[in-house]
Design a protein around this nucleic acid. Sequence first.
DNA 1: GTGAAAGCGCTAACAG
DNA 2: CTGTTAGCGCTTTCAC
Lengths: 342, 342
Amino acid sequence: MGAEKNYRLTLEDVARLSEVSRSTVSRVINNHPNVSQEVRQRVLKVIQETGYLPHLAARSLASQRSRILGLVFPRSVAAFFADPYFPRFTQGVAQACNQNDYTLSLFIFYSPEDERKLFPRISHRGHLDGVIVQATTANDPIFSTIRNGSIPCVFAGRAPNSKGFSFVDVDNETGAYTAVSHLLQLGRKRIATITGPLDQTAGMDRKQGYIKALQDRGRIVENELIASGDFSRISGYNAARALLPQSPDAIFVASDVMALGALQAIQEEGLKVPDDIAIVGFDDLPPARSSSPPLSTIRQPIMRLGVKAVEMLLDIIESGNQSPQRMIFDTELVIRESCGSN
Amino acid sequence: MGAEKNYRLTLEDVARLSEVSRSTVSRVINNHPNVSQEVRQRVLKVIQETGYLPHLAARSLASQRSRILGLVFPRSVAAFFADPYFPRFTQGVAQACNQNDYTLSLFIFYSPEDERKLFPRISHRGHLDGVIVQATTANDPIFSTIRNGSIPCVFAGRAPNSKGFSFVDVDNETGAYTAVSHLLQLGRKRIATITGPLDQTAGMDRKQGYIKALQDRGRIVENELIASGDFSRISGYNAARALLPQSPDAIFVASDVMALGALQAIQEEGLKVPDDIAIVGFDDLPPARSSSPPLSTIRQPIMRLGVKAVEMLLDIIESGNQSPQRMIFDTELVIRESCGSN
DNA sequence: GTGAAAGCGCTAACAG
DNA sequence: CTGTTAGCGCTTTCAC
């Protein structure tokens, strides 16, 4: 191991020790082809022995690339760290950043104050090489910021007004469609839904999948069976309470966290899940596995979304490719006890 | 609003436009006193109008400070984003970083591979101005890395071998003591505990508080009433199952997440909480509020821990103060239904 | 395949 | 209070 001294070694030092020029050392570090095997080995050895580490700021300044990626959670993603979805996504992003030798820098917005302060840093070229932005409602100021800036960006989730933007997402509509179809196959007659916020595509698309599944089987879509929530547990609880008087025999809930709230409301009413009411959630987060009864749900590959977002972003950065890219992941129906299929 | 062009303005540009030298502009930006009011205003106006933003890398290089703080989750913090504690703490850290114009950079370790790659970046001076490290087991390699490096560091939680390190923490022992004392006052006779991992101070201290509360009231500490977990839900579930044959009438559980698992185990056994068994958890995370029955628990100010960690770290960085600092927050008993006091 | 030289955009003495 | 002058440590033409 190289000594970890206070004195920082520089390229200059390594060059001297390996008896070549700074340029050559730089080439070795950056894997430039124009270095002879012999010299390369010699330099590598010195680097190894000294524990030399390039100075990131110096490198950024000279190369005009910071090798820092931003991960942005807009203010309208209020639920932020209350829903396990976000930490999990963050984990995927962090992992992929490590893998690719990029540094991850986290931006979480709370107040307009934060935005005023941080938006310039995010959108101006020079600080970040690119950003991953959690998609949210159309009117969040983050959109105009990104649009007016010139920084490479990938959205996590399709944003309502994100035409021309790159994004990673899951097929929300098909996921919901699958969930509701399953419920129909099980013979449920009055299938209700608790939607997510309808100003986000995830909320809209999942609702659309619910509607489509019903229609494809010739069922009538009843508005009294549709309640809306905001992905929070309490909103799921309240929505379920509002739904119960309509005597549904099944509910498709647009997120696991809301489903947990709904489950509680149902049970408090003395009703049994799945006997009286079947439930299918969406996300497949850990809490879904440990509820009583365990929650049937639509699994989405959250961590992989994070990883893919980074890879897509790096591709955009490195290729300079301007045309928007997109990647839609499939979901998977996970059957547990809450839907009563076993 | 300044135009967000591809061309980056430099200090030079601002200097020219405001008809002063680069140094003066630099002084204005860095709030140096040696600038006349008049000139300062003029420069500020130009900055405002042009939307000039200093180039961080250039600044870092020249000033030898990156204004980037690292937040590190060691590999042995496996539960990572499964326990809402961490996201919440992260939130506090992110908030405080914004406030102080520092950038937050996140390091989450999964594999030895990650460590090999990232440790040098963390411990070498020059990349990060300081790091906040989530405390964990004594044998995690992060400790030697930090110790051998020369980077300012604050631990979140007291580490088992962190003598001489700065940290923020809560008074775990007193928190546990309070919880158990409350249970005793309610007349519970056979109070069990489910501990956290005993190679972490949070686990040890909470166990110690349990023991002390019992002893202070002249109770005998029975080993059969002590089960250990690892802060995960499933470990709480298993520990509770192991405890039930000893017929406890109360359990102090060292984390809310484990308490939820224990609750489930108890209820599956047909026992009632709090009638048959009272439960008090630790943390006061959102899930504690929404369980049935709601969980009595020991609240710790998680976000404030994050904020304080940053402030402490900045103080160390800016003052160059070497002597270890520490801050211990008080906890608070939150009474809900699971302990049966109402 | 290698080295010399010119910056990248900023800070920080040092003069004045 | 203000300007001049050196760098910070690296990348990147451009010669050779």
